[in-house]
Design a protein around this nucleic acid. Structure first.
Length: 891
RNA sequence: GGGUCGUUAGCUCAGUUGGUCAGAGCGUCUGGUUUACACCCAGAAGGUCGGGGGUUCGAGCCCCUCACGACCCACCA
């Protein structure tokens, strides 16, 4: 980060252009390590960013470009404020998305039972992102599979980096990390082991939501509702009190009849008072089940009495637990009906169940409905209904409840006591500064709605393994209560190949030996540690104490869709591990919406590739679009805004070229135009600086609140007015063609130089390439490491001049231009005579700039008088002959 | 059912403690060869600020209510 490093030779081109600026400056910045973090530092000098590690699973989309650009603006501002910026960017390359992409790309699938194959070549490369049929995928060993995942993510990460560089992100690429690499695995495993030691991680055998396609448990945060068609089936159970009366229930899941363990109604429900405590038998299967009372049953729902099955939904789980009911599972981990249902005691019932065994849930439902129709237990026609069904967010079959042994991490979901973990985490959310502030409610909402702890084990292959083994008993049974852990120094480990202390490989899976935990950690269980991963928490000793210099971080930028996952889980981990918030600020960016206000669909998002956008509109143009959108607000995908941004960047080039072309007096020792406030004497020039001082204050206040959009909103109109009015007004004077002579020219040129220099810095966080290009024409170093401008020196240079003078004179200029526009003549047309009427105070301003106004309007006789109204008016206008049209000479 | 955000010119959006706040850009229209810029310049037209109440001397701005949209959560017999 040196300002004296050599820069490419830059002269002002005849026709400035944006073409090629991205490559040119990316390579210069990269060579000079312009964005490198300086390790010789203390925490108070640092601004550290916990950048989202993009999922390396294919392609970036416009949403990435949007969010990362916005964060980069905040970061660049902080850098210009003199902060030592720590801005790493990692890759999230572990987990299901990567697995799926590798399967499709290489045409393989993981089969852990197969042996490793040395020098394996996959059957294909570059397969489409569409799901291919499992039948067409070659089964390979877990290790071969992981190798392919690593190969593929390396490719993706390279292409992602190219996009981010082209976008002009001021990331320190020397500090990138991968969530799957060895250091990250060690960090993730260490954090888990420490959680285990603290009693924050525990295992439990319980019914959990299960994806039958991926055959893994999924956490609450990964579930979503989808509307699906279902139907209420009214089915009769038979009372066992000898009356033979039927009790009717309504269910959308008739296939779970064999799994019924009880009926339940509300304790106050008059209709069922006589039934509580009695039993009924289920249709088809003849299983006797009790009728019980529980306040969770809703009298107005369905028949008011529900069948409890283990397990149809979360209510079933609650009832099962609270009413101490038996477990009768019929759905297996593959989503098919289990072969046996031993609790069915009748021969007829067993015969019926035999028909269901092996069927998918879908087929079983069809068959059961046929059965109850035949038997007459189904009353009337099933009533169709659209209802929400729980899905894994990446899955396409409904989740089922399956009982399994899983690992959990405390997250407040089960500790709702006053001042308990949940309260502590809610307090953490309140402690965090949210941008925008209202996003905190999404966090609180989520934490308050948690129904259990965080399920962190996944029955998958590509990820961070649980660093655990279990003892194997004398009978060869796994003793889950005897957990064997490695020492911290040994991490990372893979329990399927590493051996616990005191054992040898030959004892693996043998009686009296050990067995590996086969599961991997939830992706979020590793990515929730990004501040620790990026900051080198686990390798403090050999990283110069980096962690203490960057943690807690200053900023977490991210989308609002992952507040419940990434943001929350990161707070959980930091709270448990470091007893602190992971960052001071969270900047939440919105979604990109289609022009029709729908969430940008995947297909469209892929058609519009980020790199194509950057090429078409220029990175500055695309950044501008992101920079105009406020934090947290969903934004229309609008190429119009990118075009405007591109236009702005081009304007910056052209206006700068012009402003620097009037001559180099006053000059600096190198002979370049100097931004010397001492020679700014003209009232108009001083007023310009006074106005600029206000703009600087507004932009600074906005950026201090991390509000890049508000800053841009202050700077941009000033810049356009500067171009359209101020430059036009002082053109002649700056050329030296004015009664004000050399002093007037020097004043204008210095004011132009000062303003330009300040404007370049104000625009630099957003329009990164064009500002750097202009800066290189006449200044040393990079604009991106200059100090953010201050208002005070500008105000001093303005010497008390009223900023309003600029607007007044601009108003007069517009009035004069309108004369010619209305007359439909060229702006070059001379005004032979005009009387301008203005209010008293405005008149003083106009008089001060009379010479500039005269030059602008080509006025031969200008009369300034006090008018009656508030407006500036022109009277007694006499226009001259328009200039003779001549073909434009091509220079 | 609960929560959050939004509804301002044809389009995309500003409008921060209620008092030039009815704005910007795009688009449209009318003009202009103005040696920084045709990836340009100048000018114009366009809105009873979602509906209805209320508070106030005064309300896009505060309160209530309704409608619509988006998202999150809950329910999902």
């Amino acid at each position: 980060m040196t300002d004296t490093a050599p820069r490419p030779d830059s002269t002002i081109p005849d026709r400035p252009s944006l073409e090629g600026l991205e490559e040119k400056w990316d390579s210069v910045w990269s060579e000079q390590d312009l964005y490198a973090f300086d390790p010789e530092t203390t925490r108070d000098q640092v601004f550290s960013v916990d950048t989202p590690p993009p999922t390396a699973s294919g392609a970036l989309h416009v949403g990435h470009v949007f969010g990362y650009s916005q964060a980069d603006m905040i970061v660049r501002y902080q850098r210009m404020r003199g902060k030592n910026v720590f801005y790493p960017l990692g890759w999230d390359d572990n987990g299901l998305p990567t697995e799926r992409r590798a399967q499709n790309y290489y045409g393989v699938r993981c089969d852990p039972s197969l042996p490793y194959e040395e020098g394996f070549t996959p059957p294909q490369e570059g397969g489409s992102n569409k799901s291919s049929k499992a039948a067409n995928q070659l089964p390979i060993s877990r290790r071969n599979f992981i190798e392919l995942c690593e190969q593929l993510t390396a490719l993706d990460e390279k292409s992602f980096e190219d996009v981010f560089r082209a976008l002009g992100l001021s990331v320190d690429w020397d500090h990138s990390y991968q969530t799957i690499n060895s250091a990250s695995r060690a960090t993730s495993q260490r954090a888990f082991l420490e959680n285990l030691q603290q009693g924050q991680a525990y295992q439990s055998e319980a019914p959990t939501m299960w994806d039958v396609t991926y055959r893994t448990a999924v956490a609450q945060a990964e579930q979503e509702d989808r509307e699906r068609e279902g139907a209420y089936h009214r089915i009769g159970f038979t009372r066992t009190d000898g009356t033979g009366e039927a009790v009717f229930i309504e269910t959308t899941r008739p296939e779970l009849l064999p799994a019924c363990v009880a009926l339940v109604a509300h304790p106050d429900d008059e209709r069922y008072q006589g039934l509580f405590g009695s039993t009924v038998t289920s249709p088809l299967f003849g299983v006797e089940v009790p009728v019980m009372a529980h306040p969770l049953a809703q009298p107005d729902k369905g028949a008011g009495i529900a069948m409890i099955c283990t397990f149809g939904d979360s209510n079933d789980v609650t009832w099962w637990r609270e009413l101490s009911l038996p477990t009768r599972s019929v759905v297996g981990r593959d989503g098919r009906f289990l072969p046996e249902a031993p609790w069915i005691s009748t021969e007829e019932g067993q015969a019926r169940y035999a028909e269901l065994a092996g069927l998918t849930v879908f087929s079983a439902q069809k068959r059961v409905v046929e059965m109850v129709t035949e038997s007459g237990d189904l009353v009337g026609e099933p009533e169709k209904v659209m209802h929400p069904v729980k899905f894994y967010e990446n899955g396409d079959k409904p989740l089922e409840f399956v009982t399994s042994r899983q690992w959990y991490l405390t997250n407040g979901g089960r500790d709702q006591s006053e001042g308990g973990l949940r309260d502590e985490l809610i307090a953490r959310g309140a402690e965090l500064t949210w941008h925008p502030a209202y996003m905190e409610s999404r966090y609180r909402n989520w934490v308050e709605g948690l129904t259990g702890d965080w399920l962190i084990s996944r029955q998958r292959f590509y990820g961070v393994p649980f660093p655990l083994w279990y003892a194997v008993g004398a009978e060869g049974e796994t003793d889950h209560d005897t957990v064997l852990t490695p020492p911290i120094e040994a991490l990372p480990i893979d329990p399927t190949t590493d051996v616990p202390a005191g054992f040898t490989e030959s004892q693996r899976n043998q009686p009296g030996g050990f067995t590996a935990d086969p599961d991997i950690l939830d992706t979020w269980a590793t990515s929730s540690l990004t501040p620790q991963l990026a900051g080198g928490w686990n390798s403090q000793a050999d990283s110069d104490g980096l962690f203490d210099k960057v943690y807690p971080m200053d900023l977490r930028p991210q989308g609002h869709d992952i507040i419940r996952t990434w943001l929350f889980s990161t707070i959980v981990r930091s709270h448990l591990q470091q007893d602190s918030l992971p960052w001071k600020h969270a900047s939440i960016n919105g979604w990109i919406l289609d022009p029709d206000r729908k969430k940008m669909s995947k297909s469209k998002g892929n058609v519009v590739t980020p790199i194509g956008l950057l090429q078409q509109h220029g990175s500055d143009g695309v950044r501008y679009w992101a920079g105009r959108a406020r934090q947290g607000v969903d934004t229309a995908f609008d190429e119009g805004q990118m075009k405007i941004g591109r236009r702005l960047a081009i304007k910056i080039l052209n206006a700068s070229k012009f402003a620097l072309g009037f001559g180099s007096a006053p000059a600096d020792p190198a002979g370049r135009l100097a931004a010397d406030p001492a020679v700014v004497t003209d009232p108009l020039d001083r007023a310009l600086l006074a106005e600029l001082a206000q703009v600087v204050e507004q932009a600074t206040a906005a950026f201090d609140d991390m509000d890049y959009a508000r800053s841009l909103e202050a700077v941009e109109p000033f810049f356009w007015a500067f171009c359209d009015d101020y430059i036009e007004l002082v053109k002649e004077r700056a050329h030296g063609n004015s009664p004000a002579g050399e002093a007037g020219a020097a004043s204008a040129r210095a004011a132009l130089a000062i303003t330009l220099e300040v404007l370049l810095r104000l625009f630099a966080p957003v329009v990164v390439f064009a500002t750097e290009e202009v800066w290189s024409w006449w200044r040393d170093g990079s604009v991106h490491t200059q100090a953010w401008p201050q208002a005070a020196p500008l105000r001093e240079a303005a010497a008390g001049q009223d900023a309003a003078l600029v607007d007044t004179v601009a108003q007069a200029a517009i009035t004069l231009r309108r004369l010619k526009s209305d007359a439909k003549v060229s702006q070059k047309t001379p005004i032979l005579r005009v009387r301008v009427e203005a209010p008293q105070q405005a008149l003083a301003h106009l008089e001060a700039a009379a010479a500039d106004l005269t030059a602008l309007g080509r006025i031969e006789q200008l009369e300034l008088v006090v008018g009656e109204g508030e407006e500036i008016l022109t009277r007694d206008v006499e226009l001259g002959e328009p200039p003779v049209k001549q073909p434009r000479s091509q220079g």
